[in-house]
């Protein structure tokens, strides 16, 4: 009886009864996962990356949870390192993309009609070709390599967020509290800092986090197609494209497990972004 009575109190103290509390927990778990991944990559060492012929082509077992490849390299080590590399590339590209989108979105909304027309045409231009074709073009222009992949992903992902920021600022400019503030003689800089930034900042942060999944998936896809990144530095795209040559002979674990861990990682970024939205959005405080 006493445990039953205490359970709801415990649940309440842990904060899992309301939406925000749950979101906090989810957020913490996601961050813990990413931290574990980074620590694992740092402490693993390069032992698993060297060739080890006696242990080649092993199916997943206790000693090698992800199996080994045709050179006897430990797939778990390669997957963790590859994930970190893919995460790094995605992070870098998404950050660059979000800075570009913030700059262009703000310019477009504040610098008058002509700038706005130029920026919106630029957005239409980037969206005019299929995303992947643009990625291939840019990566070709950079001559392939890791830099090519990063630049390609960075210059092609800013359009959506730029549109969101532009629309948000345009809306804020017409908001009553901004109009009143202007009539009261506040400087544009003061209005931007006190009235606009608190609205834009959460949108921007969440937009940035929700860019990661796209950036990571696209950089993995581009690498998978054979653009950039050498086989010596494994990234998930490379692992998967290598596995394609061995999948017809039955080595399923080479493809399934690295891909699955990429899926989980990308999904967790998505969950992270959405939890953050629940926590920061005032509209959901009562759920």
């Amino acid at each position: 009886m006493s445990t039953l009575a205490r359970t709801p109190a415990l649940a309440e103290r842990l904060g899992i009864t309301d939406g925000r509390g749950r979101a906090m927990w989810v957020l913490g778990l996601c961050l813990a996962y990413f931290a574990t991944l980074l620590l694992a990559a740092a402490f693993m060492g390069d032992a698993g990356l060297s060739t080890d012929f006696p242990n080649k082509k092993l199916a997943p077992c206790f000693e090698f949870p992800f199996g080994t490849d045709w050179l006897g390299r430990d797939m778990l080590v390669r997957t963790v390192k590859g994930l970190c590399r893919s995460l790094g590339i995605g992070l870098l590209a998404a950050t660059v993309s979000s800075v570009v989108s913030a700059a262009l979105g703000t310019l477009s909304a504040t610098m008058g009609k002509r700038t706005d027309a130029v920026v919106t045409t630029l957005i239409d231009l980037v969206m005019a070709t299929p995303h992947l074709v643009l990625l291939i073009l840019v990566s070709f222009a950079c001559g392939g390599g890791a830099t090519g992949v990063i630049i390609a992903v960075a210059v092609s992902h800013w359009t959506r967020l730029a549109r969101i920021i532009r629309a948000e600022i345009l809306q804020l400019k017409q908001a009553e509290f901004v109009m009143v503030s202007r009539k009261l003689g506040r400087s544009p800089w003061w209005i931007a800092r006190r009235h606009m930034l608190p609205h834009i900042a959460p949108q921007f942060t969440i937009g940035l986090i929700l860019l990661f999944p796209h950036a990571i998936l696209h950089s993995a896809g581009l690498t998978f197609l054979g653009f950039g990144l050498s086989p010596h530095n494994p990234s998930i795209g490379i692992l998967l494209s290598e596995s394609m040559r061995h999948i017809s002979t039955g080595y399923w674990w080479l493809a399934i497990l690295p891909g699955l861990s990429l899926l989980v990682t990308v999904k967790l970024f998505d969950v992270l972004g959405n939890s953050l939205r629940v926590i920061t959005d005032p509209k959901t405080s009562q759920e």
Binding site: I247, G250, A255, L263
Partner: peptide, 23 residues
């Protein structure tokens, strides 16, 4: 739907290939 949105399409292809063509 939400899970599929974070699935790399080429990996999906590899999984189908491993299951239906190879196995």
């Amino acid at each position: 739907s939400y899970t599929l949105a974070s699935t790399p399409s080429f990996w999906m292809g590899l999984v189908l290939l491993a299951v239906f063509s190879v196995s």
